[in-house]
Write a protein that binds this DNA or RNA. Structure first.
Lengths: 208, 208
DNA sequence: GTCTATATAGCGATAGAC
DNA sequence: GTCTATCGCTATATAGAC
């Protein structure tokens, strides 16, 4: 786990009491995602989150101890969802790359999520940001998995030898991030999935 | 010009009185850059800028009418500096691309500037941000100039025909942005200029 | 579990003295 | 041109009633 506190509830209570409370928790997380997506963590207020979910601020803070714990819970919740969406640890590297393109395609349908990560990763660049460590580790991990994927491709002779695998990983990740910024600023002007597909095909030396 | 108010002083007064005041203005702009670079526009405060330059807030607001005018002045000031640094409208497209790599190399020596644009461009993704229009136009313009550069390369037969020029422009810009995020999060792990150089060489099909 | 009320702090901006 | 003083607002977080 990262150094960010997760804000998860202790797991000691009986199951039945959790259904409704769990719903409320998820509703809060959804609202918080939308609020933090619009201008980042520092600009988003608990007040706005509370209003969006129809509670008072104090009511909200009963579910999460403080603002940064709420952010951590949002990120952790999204990680749970996307881990099931894109399996990056499979044995077939081509499938992994296709999964990346599929992810880019899916992302275009959830602009809020894209805005969240885009804004937060830039904001979290500053070392005192509550999600700084989270993003440092996230990038490190993603880069590692990408590098492994490209390594498998090289072993299988399925990739042009132009770039070392570390460079390929850096570039792929950078391209995905950069495309998101341009897409958020002008959604009609760019198709993130198409561009990523073209880039990866160029890297492979053949249609992906 | 963009829709952001520039906050420039009216140009009517005698020259002599401007020397000292101009110095103060630049000092304020430098301080504001540093403050806005750390966590963005919304998180940065006039108070902090004023403290850094050794003035009261009211004193600062004598030079700039309000916070968003200060931001606009910072961006405009940086644009003046970088316009002299990277001539993007030359006739030799290879020289232009080399200039881009040189810019990436230079950027690595001014992390504050990189952090400013990185954080702001993500923050300005939200439509009500005071620099939203500025960044929309900035990206549009940069993309246009890049597209023209790649067009010249195609005409000269100096580029692999893999990508249409619009894609090449999108990708190049995206790569530069994405590399900056990763570099800010882990400066030792990536050389932005090297990666950009490798990418452009791959695009050309030969060493740049 | 949710509320009202409140403590405490920081913000941008203005008025007016010097 | 710079200051002090202040206004009006918003923020996070806590205390305690229900």
């Amino acid at each position: 786990m990262t150094s960010v506190k997760t804000g998860n509830k202790p797991q000691g209570k009986p199951r039945g009491a959790y259904a409704k409370t769990g719903m409320k928790r998820v509703a809060i997380l959804d609202a918080a995602l939308a609020v933090f997506a619009n201008g980042g963590y520092r600009a988003g207020s608990l007040r706005e989150v509370a209003a969006q979910v129809g509670m008072s601020e104090a009511g909200l803070l009963h579910h999460f101890p403080n603002k940064s714990a709420l952010l951590a819970a949002v990120l952790s919740h999204r990680d749970d969802l996307s881990a099931t969406l894109v399996p990056m640890d499979g044995d077939d590297p081509i499938e992994t790359l296709r999964g990346l393109v599929a992810l880019a395609r899916y992302n275009a349908s959830v602009p809020g999520v894209v805005a969240l990560y885009c804004t937060l990763s830039a904001e979290a660049t500053s070392p005192d940001h509550p999600a700084h460590d989270y993003f440092v580790e996230r990038y490190e991990g993603t880069r590692g998995r990408l590098e492994r994927t490209f390594g498998l491709l090289v072993s299988a002779g399925r990739v042009r030898a132009d770039f070392p695998t570390t460079s390929a990983a850096f570039m792929t990740l950078a391209l995905m991030d950069g495309l998101q910024v341009q897409w958020l600023l002008a959604p009609e002007s760019v198709d993130m999935a198409d561009e990523l597909h073209a880039f990866l095909s160029g890297l492979l030396g053949q249609e992906l």
